[in-house]
Simulated assay, not measured.
Amino acid sequence: MASGSGNGDAGGGTFALKPWELHGEGREFEKISEDFGKAVSTLEQSLAALGSPWGQDRPGSGFAAAYKDARGGLLGGLRGLAGQLGQVGSGLHTMAERTVDAETAAAAGFGGAAGQGGPVTPAATPGARTTVPKDRSA
């Protein structure tokens, strides 16, 4: 996704963001989010299927009260985590699009082609959007 040299050499380091790789990683996070959400739903159904085996006596009632609060907090947190994983994927897509926009704008400002053979080709007409390949991995 990114490469760089942080060793302070006189030649300077390079840093390259490849939009198609950012999009690919974004799709991966979206898939992980979906899978995680399904696992949370399965867990929730499994816990519900257990019913309330702790009984109605005083110790059982005390356990039930604590368990229900803990279970609700756990499941709510896990659902929130699934959503946040999806937001990471969306953020990576946004980063890819902004990288293309920034490189295109910079190239247009210098009157040249973006990347000089790199991944981004500037738009032929002002205001036109560039096309970024979705995935170039082997």
Rank of each mutant, 00 (worst) to 15 (best):
M1A: 13
G4Y: 11
S5C: 12
G6W: 05
N7V: 02
N7L: 10
N7F: 04
G8K: 10
A10E: 13
A10M: 13
G11V: 06
G11Q: 13
G12F: 05
G13W: 06
T14R: 11
T14K: 09
F15V: 10
L17N: 06
L17C: 05
L17A: 13
P19A: 10
P19E: 07
E25V: 11
G26M: 04
F29A: 09
E30G: 11
S33E: 08
E34L: 12
D35M: 11
F36C: 04
A39S: 15
A39P: 02
A39T: 13
T42A: 15
L43N: 03
L43G: 04
E44C: 02
E44H: 02
Q45W: 00
S46H: 02
L47G: 06
A48K: 13
A49M: 09
L50R: 01
L50N: 03
G51M: 05
S52W: 00
R58D: 14
R58F: 08
G60Q: 08
S61M: 11
A64V: 00
A64C: 00
A66T: 01
Y67N: 07
Y67G: 01
K68Y: 02
K68E: 15
K68A: 14
A70T: 09
A70E: 07
G72R: 09
G73C: 04
L74A: 12
L74S: 05
L74H: 02
L78S: 05
G80T: 12
G80L: 05
A82K: 04
G83T: 08
G83H: 09
Q84R: 14
Q84V: 04
L85W: 09
G86L: 05
G89M: 05
G89E: 06
S90E: 11
L92W: 00
T94P: 00
A96N: 03
E97I: 03
R98Q: 15
T99R: 01
T99E: 13
T99N: 12
T99F: 04
T104M: 14
A107K: 01
F110H: 14
F110R: 14
F110D: 09
G112R: 12
G112I: 15
A114W: 02
Q116Y: 11
G117C: 12
G118M: 05
G118N: 09
G118V: 03
V120G: 01
V120C: 04
A123G: 09
A124T: 14
A124V: 10
A124K: 14
A124D: 13
T125Y: 06
P126C: 03
P126A: 09
P126R: 04
G127N: 08
A128G: 06
A128S: 13
R129P: 09
R129V: 10
R129H: 10
T130L: 03
T130N: 08
T130F: 00
V132M: 12
P133F: 10
P133A: 15
P133R: 12
K134F: 03
R136G: 06
A138Y: 02
